[in-house]
Design a protein around this nucleic acid. Structure first.
Lengths: 223, 223
DNA sequence: TGAACGGATTTTGGATGCATAATACATTTG
DNA sequence: CAAATGTATTATGCATCCAAAATCCGTTCA
């Protein structure tokens, strides 16, 4: 039987607000009305307010004393900075993964890689991204560093919104696939230094993609 | 005149609990009694509980549903992992700093470096660490990446407790100073790649220091 | 006409109250 | 005597309440 989930209301609420933000139902910069959300969720203000505190320290929400909460409005600079950080974290995950990864895990990643190549050849963007995500996730898991994973997930959550709107030019896509070829080769050799270096630069590409597609939506916030 | 501090109670409380944890007045693994802290601070449970939520998502406190809060008990593994992460972040800060740092800032860091060397020669450990911290802080600031700074500060806060108990062997100390010499040289050349690489490894030394002095205190927690 | 003032309304921050889950402890029972 | 059970106590989770701050809005006055 499955473990009883002792989930508190504030966690539940935090999860749901996170999703609202992620899917844009709470727009960037939008004021978050406690009253409205309380009614929407059917909870009192206490758990909602606790949830907002959590979301604030996760960087998703801005809390202005006596003036309520707003959805954090990402600036282009912040997104760029976040991608830089994620690049460094991916780099570390690659280095560590080479130290700890099992043969089976490598095999699994190689299999994912093959699948990804298929999607690339068929120009199936959504499927490509999904498998791509799984590869990076597998490396992160193979790093055996939970603090790293926690931090990466947090950053990833922050920029999820803009990631949704990314576009992929042909040359970027080819470059990304090329990176992946090199990654696999480094991984097979368990060459941490090299894998780390590839990964540190790899996400920088994604960054440029994001910056291209989001120039319009961002820069709207002071800062 | 100074800016009016619109500080909420829960922030104040969070700061104070953070300090209690940092200075060991709340011991690792210790149960945090809401009632007791409320009385100690003279506040009601609401702001205290909000503060605990924040501290939990900062990784300082563990919240067990219906079973109260405990101070996170760091395992040796977690400390190691955290240092690895901080190394990666320092590496990034070095790379970015080389892109953005001004001549004045470099000068200031070089000055700090000279001061640090003095403390090294005089074997003034506390002063050495203080100046050392300032150097790394300056680099972090020069990275112009606020997300990076936020993350680094968070991680740093988590391991502050164990940092207090670190010991410095002569050979480690010499190695650290040697790293710093190379850092300064890379910084003057604004060689981001090199500075990044030095910094990524630099903190690993500190890690070993921590692991030496904390073997006894940690490993006491499941996980 | 528009900037400034002031009261009414809304919203936030913090304290308190109440139901329920967890813990402690005494009692029972094998 | 130890394990198990039941009860009393305590702590937690959530809702509600109240005071203070911010916002809204109509009026006044330059």
């Amino acid at each position: 039987m499955s473990k009883i989930q002792h989930r508190n209301l504030y966690r539940e609420v935090a999860d749901r607000v996170r999703k609202l933000i992620e899917h844009g139902e709470l727009a960037p910069g939008e004021r978050i009305s406690e009253k409205q959300l309380c009614e929407q969720f059917g909870v009192s203000r206490t758990p909602l307010r606790e949830a907002l505190k959590v979301l604030a320290s996760e960087g998703l929400v801005l809390l202005l004393p006596n003036r309520g909460a707003r959805v954090v409005q990402l600036t282009l600079k912040t997104v760029k900075d976040t991608y830089d950080l994620m690049g460094a974290l991916e780099g570390l995950s690659g280095e560590l993964a080479c130290q700890h990864i099992s043969d089976d895990e490598i095999e699994a990643i190689v299999a994912l890689h093959e699948r990804m190549l298929g999607h690339y050849r068929n120009r199936e963007l959504a499927e490509y991204f999904e498998v791509n995500r799984k590869i990076h996730e597998s490396l992160l898991a193979a790093s055996r560093n939970e603090v790293l994973q926690e931090m990466y997930n947090n950053l990833s959550q922050r920029v999820k919104r803009v990631r949704y709107s990314k576009k992929m030019t042909d040359s970027f896509w080819r470059q990304a696939v090329n990176d992946h070829e090199n990654m696999i080769s480094a991984l097979k050799k368990r060459d941490g230094k090299q894998l780390g270096q590839i990964l540190r630069n790899h996400l920088c590409n994604k960054l440029e993609i994001a910056s291209l597609s989001d120039e319009h939506a961002d820069d709207t916030l002071p800062g």
